[in-house]
C-alpha cells in the first residue's frame, strides 16, 4: 500500500478509508504538497454528489438545530500551529482531517480491534467484515438492479414527469419514458390502507387494465417500476387485497394520463 499511497486520494475524499488507512494517508498528506491540491480538487467534485441527494428535512429539524446552537459554544479560531493530535475533541473538521470526535467516542471495541488488526496485519481486518459483506451482497444485487432500472427511466432524455392526486388522499407522480418503454410510479402521503390491503397500479389502455405493480400491504407511500408500457395511455391506482388483484377493483383512486 505504501508504494502508491497517493492513489488513495480518491478513497480518502469519499470517506472510504478505514481508520488505520486514513491515519497513514493523512500522515502522507502532511508531507505531500501535490496530494493536498488533488485532495482539495477531488473534494469539490465529491461535494457535487451531494447535489443528487436533496430531500426536504422534517420541519422540526430547523427548530432543533437553532435551539441547540444557542446553547453550543463555538470553537476559538485556529492558531497557525495545528493542535492535533493531542486534543482529538478539538480537531478541526478541516479538509485534511474531518472531526472524528463523535466517531471515536462511539467507536466500539470491535471497531478498535479491527483498526488494530489492520495495522498489524495489513489487509486482514476485512476478514472480520466478511460476514456482513456476504450477507449484504445478495440484497444489494437485487436492490441495485431495481434502482438502476429506475434510474434509467428517470434520467432518460425523454423522461416526463406527471402528477396526479389520489381521491382518498395523497399524490401520485409518474415519470415515464417512451424510449425505455417504462415508468416509475411514486406514491406519497396516501391514507393508510390498513394491514390487509395494498395499493396497486394499473396500465390502462382504453378500457383494458393490466397490473403495473403492487406496494407492500399497509404501505402508504413507495415507488414501483413499471415495465412494458406499450401503448398505455393512463396509469391508474386502486386499493386491493394484500396479494393484489388481476383486474382493478373500483373505485379508481387515481388516474394519470401519460400520453
Amino acid at each position: 500500500m505504501t508504494n502508491d499511497i497517493h492513489l488513495l486520494t480518491g478513497a480518502y475524499v469519499l470517506d472510504s478509508l478505514d481508520d488505520a488507512d486514513r491515519d497513514v494517508f493523512t500522515q502522507h498528506l502532511d508531507e505531500c504538497e501535490g496530494c493536498a491540491g488533488e485532495v482539495a480538487e477531488l473534494r469539490e467534485t465529491v461535494v457535487r454528489l451531494a447535489d443528487d441527494s436533496w430531500a426536504v428535512p422534517p420541519p422540526r429539524l430547523r427548530q432543533n438545530v437553532m435551539d441547540q446552537i444557542r446553547t453550543t459554544r463555538q470553537l476559538p479560531p485556529l492558531h497557525p500551529m495545528p493542535p492535533e493530535p493531542m486534543r482529538p475533541m478539538e480537531s478541526p473538521p478541516s479538509h485534511a482531517r474531518p472531526s472524528r470526535a463523535a466517531g471515536w467516542a462511539r467507536r466500539s471495541a470491535y471497531g478498535l480491534a479491527a483498526a488494530i488488526l489492520a495495522v498489524v496485519a495489513g489487509g486482514g481486518a476485512y476478514l472480520i467484515q466478511q460476514q456482513r459483506v456476504d450477507q449484504a451482497i445478495a440484497d444489494r444485487n437485487v436492490a441495485l438492479a431495481q434502482a438502476a432500472k429506475m434510474d434509467a427511466v428517470i434520467t432518460a432524455p425523454d423522461a416526463t414527469l406527471r402528477k396526479g392526486t389520489v381521491t382518498s388522499g395523497g399524490q401520485v407522480v409518474v415519470v415515464s419514458s417512451a424510449s425505455r418503454n417504462a415508468a416509475v410510479v411514486m406514491l406519497a402521503g396516501a391514507s393508510d390502507p390498513g394491514p390487509q390491503k395494498a395499493y396497486e397500479f394499473w396500465m390502462i389502455e382504453k378500457s383494458n387494465a393490466r397490473p403495473a405493480g403492487l406496494l407492500a400491504a399497509g404501505q402508504n407511500s413507495g415507488k414501483v417500476l413499471v415495465e412494458g408500457l406499450g401503448t398505455t395511455d393512463t396509469l391508474g391506482m386502486t386499493l386491493e387485497k394484500a396479494e393484489g388483484a388481476s383486474t382493478p377493483t373500483e373505485p379508481i383512486l387515481a388516474a394519470i394520463p401519460i400520453t
Binding site: 426536504v56 440484497d139 437485487v142 434520467t155 414527469l161 399524490q171 411514486m186 406519497a188 407492500a216
Partner: peptide
C-alpha cells in the same frame, strides 16, 4: 440495504422525484 425502491416510506417522494430530474447533470 433492502431495496429502497420498493420499501422506503418516503414522505417527500414528490420533491425527490423533481429533484432527481433537476439534478441530472451529476
Amino acid at each position: 440495504l433492502a431495496p429502497e425502491a420498493t420499501q422506503t416510506p418516503h414522505d417527500e417522494v414528490v420533491e425527490e422525484a423533481t429533484a432527481h430530474l433537476e439534478r441530472q447533470q451529476v
